[in-house]
Computed example of a mutant assay.
Amino acid sequence: MAIEKIHFDQPFELECGVVLPGITVAYSTYGTRRGDNVIWVCHAQTANSDVPDWWAHTVETGRFLDPEKYFIVCANILGSPYGTTCPASVNPATGEPWYGDFPMVTIRDMVRAHMLLAQALEIEHVELLIGSSMGGYQCMEWGIMQPQFARRLGLIATCDRQMPWGIAFGESQRMAIRADQSWGERRADAAYWGLAAARSVAMLSFRGPEAFNLTQDDPDRDTKLDEFRVCSYQRYNGEKLSKRFDAYSYVTLLNATDSHNVARGRGSVAEALSKIEAPALIVAITSDILFPPHGHDNLVKYIKRNQYHLIESNYGHDGFLVENEKLNELVATFMATN
């Protein structure tokens, strides 16, 4: 599987009012296109267009993203450093990377970039538009902006707007990045350690207490004074992200996440979600502290046709990555009955 790129030369106006002279969108595909057998996956914050790289046991024979049955598309989101226009891209006006000068993008901007790609690929309809977390934000917006595009929606561990609890986690991460003395320097590894610290904060929201206590306890805890297993786990995950991402893109995507609110400019949450025509599979996770089950209430209340399911899991928000057997059963059944 090779990641492909397509460049759109026309001006691309962002929701904030800034006009990019053009954008590049990176994307991946799996399987063979046969008529309307397309499934479009919207990825979460720090993932990429290569779905098997981050969503294990999904793009496999017999799974809900079966490449022998479906043509699967995933586009890297605007602002992400995996091939799509982002802060690491060259600003045509200066001939240098944007870095901290990159304008704000929103979830709606990301969806409009996806729409350009779908048009270029001559995809008018998809059998399923599915995403988790921030990916769910994109699916929701797309379902509102183009109600006839998706025949089914999969909204997993997500909600109708970024709640204050989620924004607070984002702000703590931004504070960690800005506390790094190299933040603002015009280089790709600026705020390297600030980004690592920010990711360690994010890990708390992704996993929650049940997952940490279940997987990171020390077998010799009763005799140990320091260097606990969970400390190395946090450091490892922080530096792991810093090696593959950059702080400017990370802050851009944090800001985009915070911008999510389907009601913005649409009157109310009820009016916005009622525009969704496709039947929706709505999945929450019992131990998710970032998108708790009650955070899905508006989706269930205002999307006209929906099925709601609750996955029992100790792995918090990351349950959508870990509980692939349970999720596969839910999505496969949904695809067979709608």
Results as ranks from 00 to 15, higher is better:
Ala191Glu: 02
Cys16Ile: 12
Ala47Gln: 14
Tyr308Met: 11
Thr106Pro: 14
Leu116Glu: 12
Val25Asp: 02
Val73Ala: 07
Asp297Gln: 15
Trp55Ser: 03
Gly62Ile: 03
Phe228Lys: 05
Val262Gly: 03
Leu254Ile: 15
Phe320Cys: 10
Leu129Asn: 04
Gly208Glu: 09
Val41Glu: 01
Met115Val: 14
Asn298Pro: 04
Ala263His: 03
Val262Asp: 07
Pro279Cys: 00
Ser242Trp: 01
Glu227Met: 13
Tyr70Lys: 02
Ala336Trp: 03
Thr223Ile: 13
Gly100Glu: 15
Arg151Ala: 08
Val331Leu: 01
Glu60Leu: 12
Gly194Glu: 08
Leu254Gln: 15
Cys139Val: 10
Gln162Glu: 13
Phe102Tyr: 14
Arg161Ser: 12
Ser242Gly: 00
Leu225Pro: 06
Ala190Phe: 08
Thr32Gln: 15
Phe169Lys: 10
Leu155Arg: 04
Met203Ala: 12
Val331Met: 01
Lys304Ser: 13
Thr61Trp: 04
Gly22Lys: 05
Gly208Tyr: 04
Val331Ser: 00
Ser287Pro: 01
Thr94Met: 12
Asp226Pro: 04
Lys5Pro: 02
Leu155Thr: 04
Ala247Asp: 05
Ile311Met: 13
Gly17Arg: 15
Met203Asn: 00
Gln307Thr: 08
Tyr99Pro: 02
Phe320Thr: 01
Ile23His: 09
Tyr248Ser: 10
Ile156Trp: 03
Pro92Thr: 08
Gln119Cys: 03
Arg33Gly: 00
Pro209Arg: 11
Thr158Tyr: 06
Met145Leu: 13
Val262Leu: 01
Asp101Ile: 02
Phe320Ile: 08
Ala113Met: 12
Asp220Val: 10
Leu330Pro: 10
Val262Glu: 03
Met163Gln: 09
Tyr99His: 13
Ala44Gln: 08
Ile39Trp: 01
Gly100Asp: 13
Asp218Gln: 04
Asp288Thr: 08
Met1Leu: 11
Pro92Ile: 10
Ser232Arg: 11
Thr252Glu: 11
Trp40Leu: 06
Leu116Gln: 12
Gln181Gly: 14
Gln138His: 12
Asp297Thr: 15
Pro219Trp: 09
Asp246His: 12
Lys304Asp: 04
Glu13Gln: 15
Arg186Ile: 07
Val59Ala: 07
Pro209Ala: 14
Ser200Ile: 01
Ala256Gly: 12
His114Val: 00
Cys42Glu: 14
Pro209Phe: 02
Ile39Tyr: 05
Gly136Gln: 00
Ala190Gly: 05
Asn91Cys: 09
Pro147Ile: 14
Asn213Arg: 15
Lys304Thr: 00
Asp36Thr: 07
Phe320Ser: 05
Lys301Met: 12
Ile72Gly: 06
Leu321Asn: 05
Ala44Met: 10
Ile23Pro: 06
Gly135Cys: 04
Gly95Tyr: 00
Asp217Ala: 10
Thr215Asn: 10
Leu327Cys: 07
Ala75Asn: 06
Glu141Gly: 01
Ser249Tyr: 04
Glu271Tyr: 02
Leu121Pro: 10
Arg264Thr: 15
Trp98His: 09
Pro209Met: 13
Asn298His: 10
Ile282Tyr: 02
Lys275Phe: 07
Ser182Gln: 12
Ile3Glu: 13
Glu329Met: 09
Val19Ala: 11
Glu325Gly: 00
Ile177Arg: 07
